[in-house]
Amino acid sequence: MMRYPKGLQTGQTIGVTAPSSGVDSELHDLIHLSKKQLENRGYNIKIGETVWTQYKAASATKEKRAAELNAMLQNHDIRTIIPPWGGEILQEILPLIEWEKAQAKWILGYSDTSTLLFALTLKTGIATVHGTNLIELRSDEWDPTTSKFLEVLSSEEGSMIKQVSSSYYQSKWNHDKIPDPYIYKLDTTTNWETVSNLPVEMNGRLLGGCLDTIHHLIGTPYGDVKEFQKTYLNNEPILWYFENCEMSATDFHRTLMQMQQSGWFENASGVLFGRTVAGQEVGGFTTLDALERFAEATSLPVIYNADIGHVPPQLTFINGAYAEIKANNGTGEMTMILKK
Rank of each mutant, 00 (worst) to 15 (best):
I126L: 09
E266H: 06
I14M: 13
Q74K: 08
G48L: 09
N75F: 00
S34F: 04
D29V: 12
L117P: 03
H28P: 02
G86P: 01
E49Q: 05
L211T: 15
P83Q: 14
T188D: 15
Y110L: 12
A104Y: 01
A18P: 02
K172D: 08
G86F: 00
K123F: 02
S59L: 08
R205Y: 00
D24S: 11
E156F: 04
E157P: 02
S20G: 11
T316N: 11
L338D: 06
W142F: 08
C245E: 15
P221G: 08
L256V: 10
V16F: 09
E63D: 14
S159D: 15
H32N: 13
T80R: 03
D24Q: 11
E201W: 07
N70A: 09
H216Y: 10
D24V: 11
D143A: 04
Q54A: 14
K46V: 10
T113Y: 03
G208E: 12
Y222G: 06
E156Q: 15
A102E: 09
G86W: 05
V277Q: 09
N44M: 10
T188W: 06
T128V: 09
K64T: 14
Y168E: 13
D180H: 07
S269Y: 01
E243N: 11
Q170C: 12
E136H: 07
T231D: 10
S114P: 01
L90Y: 05
S59E: 11
Q91E: 13
W99N: 05
K340W: 02
I81C: 05
L73S: 01
S166T: 09
N44C: 12
A119S: 09
M202R: 02
H28F: 01
Q261D: 15
S159N: 11
K105V: 15
T121V: 10
T220Q: 15
R41F: 04
A104T: 04
G109M: 05
S269R: 00
F273D: 04
G209T: 08
F228N: 08
H175V: 14
E193P: 04
A306C: 12
Y169P: 08
Y222E: 09
Y169M: 13
W142Q: 15
N40E: 14
R65S: 08
W99K: 03
T331N: 03
P221D: 10
Q170D: 08
Q260S: 15
D289K: 02
I78E: 05
W106R: 09
Y169N: 11
Y43C: 07
H32L: 14
I135V: 15
K123I: 06
T146Q: 12
K123P: 02
T194V: 09
I31L: 11
